[in-house]
Nucleic acid binder design. Structure first.
Lengths: 341, 341
DNA sequence: TAATCTGTTGCAAACGTTTGCCGAATGGAG
DNA sequence: CTCCATTCGGCAAACGTTTGCAACAGATTA
């Protein structure tokens, strides 16, 4: 059915090995022969069979990308960047969705292992042990999680979280809530730690509510609990939860930022589109995707297991405002000016 | 390095063909032998090599999914549903992004062809001819485009567009704008035709502005042109453009729906989160993804090339309101009640 | 008792490539 | 004219499976 290397060889009067070399080691074949082979190949519509090639070379030229939830707007920009970047290097990308389930996660890595040259693991929910185990079956790069000895690309969410809390403190809030993300999330632990430390250092209170699934519904559902704490400012694990919370507060006629300030994390596409515009911590997800691909593809050469950290930054918009400790005159903008380091 | 069928055979004292059959045709091997083989396989951590299997069976158990823009919020729910559904049937999914470029699109199909059992083509921008050409190289299912003779899953956007226009007419608008989508989009043509016909039948005016890239920026950029037409209601190719327009109007202090009504299409996740909440046409994208996968996997059996049409429906929210022809008393809700067929 | 059938297993070819090895042809140096 | 180096292309084995065919044993039938 399909046209193979053998057809091209026959049609151009050379041995199949010459055809093979024309494609995989052109410098080893006479320019004249080469162009003749190339011509007939083109004419016959020949395309190398990657499966066959993979069988003998051991390199598939495919990579896997495993994320918790494709529909979570945090991921698509990362997926897009990784795919485009990989393709530019002649790699194709399997994308798979674990639905936030660590078991599915592990199964997926194993199922994909034989079919790819490596796997990008985004925000994995597995245990460190499990991940280290899997790393022995297939090259891995972890995104958004730090595991010693494992190549990783992380966003320095701690930095962003500190900025966010300091921003709230400067605005005159001293009773804060952290709306926690899913169990098993490294990012969640980092934020929690950074936010907690920053609040404590300033003598402010920070209540942790959670864990929650990182979705709107969870943010909305947490509204009652948030109000019950009496806090005047909330930092959410991600924008989705922050937006859910915003909606729920709006439904209860609670003014944001008038009565409560809300900060998200991620800066997903539409956090600037809702009203009030969401103050949030911007993550360079596209850059992370590209960096992870590069890391994965270089991994074969030397066993160097770098860890790249990308900077995150607070973006002050309209969902945060003065708290109870602020002189009434101070505006958000004035206070915002002081937070810049 | 990796453990192969041969290792399992040696370790369990049988021929490799018996091991192979244990996995691919269990009924052909003695239950006793089978369990012994299974046990050693498990113990050795054997996993069949899909590339090798593909080489001889011709079936890769992979499918390709090609979309115009992963980061466009219309696609992720479709991708997610398709991937999950495919995996449940033991298929893995390559996802690729064409960046709205028909040339990249064609290249991708060819590059993926040898590596998959079929390809899902989402909202392709290629010409019909090109697609029919490619269909000869690899099984194809087209999503969001109707081409005679080709298996397809389409959303009946015409239906939704008619509903939307009728809704606007009923509200008392008689000067409408259609903010067109990208050149080469079947969906765009369908909407345009349906909206045009419906408006014309009612003696209303419908100006078409475009083509545009299906992104927010394009919607925002079109604001001036929209105002210049003097229209009081706008139907946009998709929610993204509608939202962009909404923002731009807001920036110019033009009230929505007070002065201009806006309708989107797609009902992406956040069209209900922005203010005013966007009136839009809901597309069953997840169902489309699943249907397309089913279609692709059944295609091998009989050459039956079905075409599935999924229903779309207008969702009335707050971005549409009474137009110049409406008695001041009529409220959106009242008018809305009349549009239901 | 012989013939036939059924169930289980081994044998070997095949899938489409890549690649180490070897021989042939060519060309320049001595 | 001989020798050596270099360039080029063919040969065949290998990658990890699947699968048609044949062999064999035991059971069933005539």
């Amino acid at each position: 059915m399909a046209v193979t290397i053998r057809d091209v060889a026959r049609a151009s009067g050379v041995h199949i090995s010459t055809v093979s070399r024309t494609f995989s080691a052109p410098h080893l074949v006479n320019p004249e022969t080469r162009s003749r082979v190339l011509a007939t190949a083109e004419q016959l519509g020949y395309r190398p069979n990657r499966a066959a090639r993979a069988l003998i070379t051991g390199r598939t030229h495919n990579i896997g990308l495993i994320v918790a939830d494709i529909a979570n707007p945090f991921f698509p920009p990362l997926i897009k960047a990784a795919e485009t970047h990989a393709r530019r290097r002649d790699y194709h990308v399997f994308v798979a969705d674990t639905d936030e389930d660590p078991i599915v996660e592990a199964e997926l890595v194993q199922a994909l292992a034989k079919q790819v040259d490596g796997i990008l693991l985004c925000s994995p929910r597995m245990s460190d042990d499990q991940i280290e185990q899997l790393r022995r079956e297939v090259p891995l790069v972890v995104i958004n999680r730090m595991i010693t000895g494992l190549p990783a690309v992380v966003m320095d969410v701690g930095h962003g979280a500190r900025q966010a809390v300091r921003h709230l403190l400067d605005l005159g809030h001293d009773n804060l809530v952290y709306l926690a993300g899913p169990r098993g999330s490294w990012t969640n632990r980092e934020i929690r730690r950074a936010a907690g430390a920053t609040a404590r250092a300033a003598g402010a209170e920070l209540t942790v509510l959670g864990p929650h699934q990182p979705v709107e519904e969870a943010g909305a559902a947490a509204a009652e609990a948030v109000l019950a704490t009496g806090a005047t400012a909330v930092l959410a694990y991600n924008d989705l939860m922050a937006i859910g919370l915003l909606q729920a507060l709006q439904d209860r006629d609670i003014a944001v930022p008038g009565q409560i300030s809300v900060v998200g994390i991620d800066d997903i596409a539409y956090s600037g589109l809702i009203r009030p515009k969401l103050t949030t911590v911007a993550n360079p997800t596209a850059a992370a995707g590209r960096a992870a691909v590069d890391m994965l593809l270089q991994q074969g050469d030397d066993g160097a297991t770098g860890q790249v950290t990308l900077r995150t930054d607070l973006i002050i918009r309209n969902s945060t405002g003065p708290g109870p400790l602020t002189p009434a005159a101070a505006t958000t903008a004035e206070v915002a000016a002081t937070v810049k380091e």
